[in-house]
Design a protein around this nucleic acid. Structure first.
Lengths: 113, 113
DNA sequence: GTAACTAGTTACCTTCAAGTAAGTACTATT
DNA sequence: AATAGTACTTACTTGAAGGTAACTAGTTAC
C-alpha cells in the first residue's frame, strides 16, 4: 500500500468516528442550538420545533455519553435542567461553521433550483 | 422573535439541507475517496472495503442527483465508468477537512479512551 | 381539586437504511 | 466452452431510526 492509499484509509477511519456523532437527524441541530447558549429541555424543544420529547431526551443522552454536552440539574421550583456544551462540544464550532457554510452553497446550487 | 433566535432558526434550516448530503454511512466516505482523485466503481469498492456493490451504486446515484459527482462512461473494453467530483463536490473540501480534524480530536477524547 | 409548569418516560408502530446473496450483460482471454 | 474482468441490478430480509400518543412525577398557583 502506498502513502496516498494509507492516508485515504486513515481518513476513512476518522470519518467513521466523526459520523458516529454527527449522524442522525437531530444531533447537529441540538449542538447548534447550544452554541447559541446553554438551554433547558423545554427551550431546546421550542427552538427545534418538530422534535418530540422522546427524541430530544434520547439524543441528549447520546451526546452526554459522547462527552459533547453536560447536564446540570437545578433544584429550583419546578426543577430545571440545563444543558451546555463541554470543551469537546465547543470544539465542534469550526466544523459546524464549515457545514453551515457549505449548506448555504448547496442550498443555492441544488435545494432551491 | 429576536435577532439571535432568527439566526438560530436560519442555521437550523441550513443544517438540515447539509445533512441531506452528509447523512448516511457511505456518502462522506465516497466523497472523501474521490478527493484523492477520480475513481472507477471497482476502485472505490476496493478502497471502502466493506461497502456492497448495491450500496455503492445507490449512493453514487444519490450523489449524482445532488450534483456532487459526475459519472463518465468510457467505451473501453471492458467498459469502464469513472466518477469524479463536480465543482460543488470539490467545494466540500473545507467542510471535509474540518470534519476530519474534529474526528481526530473526538477519537482522542472519546473513542480510544 | 384541578390546571399548569417543569422534564421527562413508556409502549407501540412504521418506515427506511442497510445487509446478503444471487443474477445480469457485455467482452476478452484461454 | 468456460472463466474472468468490467459494472452493476434485483429480490429478500433485518435492524435501527424515528414518529405518535399517552402517561409519570413533583410542585405551584388558582
Amino acid at each position: 500500500m502506498n502513502q496516498k492509499q494509507a492516508t485515504c484509509q486513515h481518513k476513512l477511519m476518522v470519518t467513521r468516528d466523526a459520523l458516529e456523532v454527527i449522524q442522525g437527524k437531530w444531533r447537529l441541530p441540538i449542538v447548534l442550538s447550544l452554541t447559541f447558549g446553554d438551554k433547558r429541555f423545554g427551550e431546546i424543544q421550542r427552538e427545534i420545533v418538530d422534535i418530540s420529547p422522546k427524541m430530544l431526551s434520547q439524543e441528549l443522552k447520546a451526546l452526554e455519553v459522547n462527552k459533547i454536552i453536560t447536564r446540570t440539574v437545578y433544584d429550583s421550583m419546578p426543577v430545571t435542567v440545563e444543558y451546555s456544551l463541554t470543551p469537546l462540544g465547543k470544539s465542534m464550532r469550526k466544523m459546524l461553521d464549515e457545514i453551515l457554510d457549505w449548506g448555504v452553497v448547496f442550498r443555492k446550487e441544488v435545494v432551491v433550483k
